[in-house]
C-alpha cells in the first residue's frame, strides 16, 4: 500500500528579483507525519511555508498541499490547512467560546457542528468552566493549547505550526507536544518549525534548510548517524555554519 502524501514539492523555488529565497526544494510529507522544518534565520523557511499555505506564488517548480495545486488552487488549500504561529493566534478581547465560534464559523462549520465542536474541544482542554473567560486573562500556556485546538477545529489534513512553543515554560512546552502527538495519531499531518533542537528529536522526520536549499532530510536518528553527531543540535550547527548568505 502506498502512503498517502499530504505535501509534495518538486524543485519549488521563489525569487525576489535576483535573490533566490527558496532554491529548488523537493520533499514529500506523509499523512499523520510530524515533519520538522528547520533552518537558520533567513534560510528561506518562512518563504517556503508561505508558498505551501497558498499565500505566495512560487517562481518555479511544483507543489501540492492536501492534494491541491499551489498555483491554481490556493483557496482550496487555505480551507484544508490549519495555521498557528506565536504572533497570530487568538482574539484577546473575545472569550474562549467566542474565539472557537468565530474560527469555526470562518471555516464554514454549521451551527450544529460549531456547538458540538465547541463542547468537545472545551472538554478536551478541561476549560468547560472558562467558556466565558476573556482570552486576554488566560495564562500563556492555556492560550497556546487553545490556539492549537482552534487551528484544527475544521479537521484539516495538515496543520502548519510556526514556532509554536517560543517563550513558553518548559512544562507547558512539553504538554504542547503531547497535543501534537495526539493530532498526529488522529491522522493530522503536522508541519512544524522550531528553534528548540530537543523538539527536532520529537519529529518523525526533519528537513534542514541552508541558503534556500534543503541540505538534509530524514529521521533524526539517521541524520545524527550521517553527520556523526550525538544530538540534533550538533547536526544543525554543522549544516547551518556552512551557510554563505547572511540574512
Amino acid at each position: 500500500m502506498q502512503t498517502e502524501k499530504v505535501i509534495t514539492a518538486k524543485n519549488l523555488s521563489k525569487k525576489f528579483g535576483h535573490f533566490v529565497a527558496v532554491d529548488h526544494i523537493s520533499f514529500e510529507v506523509n499523512k499523520g507525519e510530524i515533519f520538522g522544518f528547520l533552518g537558520a534565520n533567513g534560510a528561506g523557511k518562512t518563504t517556503a511555508m508561505r508558498m505551501l499555505c497558498g499565500l505566495s506564488m512560487p517562481s518555479s517548480g511544483e507543489a501540492t498541499v492536501a492534494g491541491f495545486d499551489v498555483y491554481k488552487q490556493t483557496e482550496q488549500i487555505k480551507k484544508n490547512i490549519g495555521y498557528m504561529s506565536q504572533r497570530f493566534s487568538l482574539y484577546e478581547d473575545l472569550t474562549i467560546g467566542e474565539n472557537i465560534r468565530f474560527y469555526a464559523g470562518i471555516y464554514g462549520l454549521t451551527d450544529k457542528q460549531i456547538r458540538e465542536k465547541s463542547d468537545s474541544l472545551l472538554k478536551e482542554l478541561n476549560m468547560q468552566e472558562h467558556k466565558k473567560t476573556l482570552v486576554r486573562e488566560l495564562p500563556l500556556g492555556w492560550k497556546q493549547k487553545l490556539a492549537f485546538s482552534i487551528a484544527i477545529v475544521h479537521d484539516p489534513a495538515i496543520v502548519f505550526l510556526d514556532e509554536p512553543t517560543g517563550g513558553v515554560d518548559p512544562i507547558t512546552r512539553r504538554e504542547f507536544w503531547n497535543l501534537i502527538y495526539e493530532a498526529s495519531s488522529n491522522g493530522i499531518t503536522v508541519f512544524v518549525t522550531t528553534h528548540y533542537m530537543d523538539e527536532a528529536e520529537y519529529c518523525h522526520r526533519v528537513s534542514i534548510m541552508v541558503d534556500g536549499r534543503i541540505d538534509a532530510l530524514g529521521a533524526p536518528a539517521s541524520l545524527k548517524k550521517d553527520h556523526a553527531a550525538k544530538t540534533m543540535d550538533e547536526v544543525f550547527l554543522q549544516l547551518a555554519r556552512k551557510a554563505v548568505r547572511s540574512e
Partner: peptide, 13 residues
C-alpha cells in the same frame, strides 16, 4: 531583555 528570542541556534551561539 531576551536578545536571543526567536534567533536560530547558530546566531545564538
Amino acid at each position: 531583555d531576551e536578545p536571543t528570542t526567536g534567533v536560530d541556534a547558530v546566531s545564538r551561539k
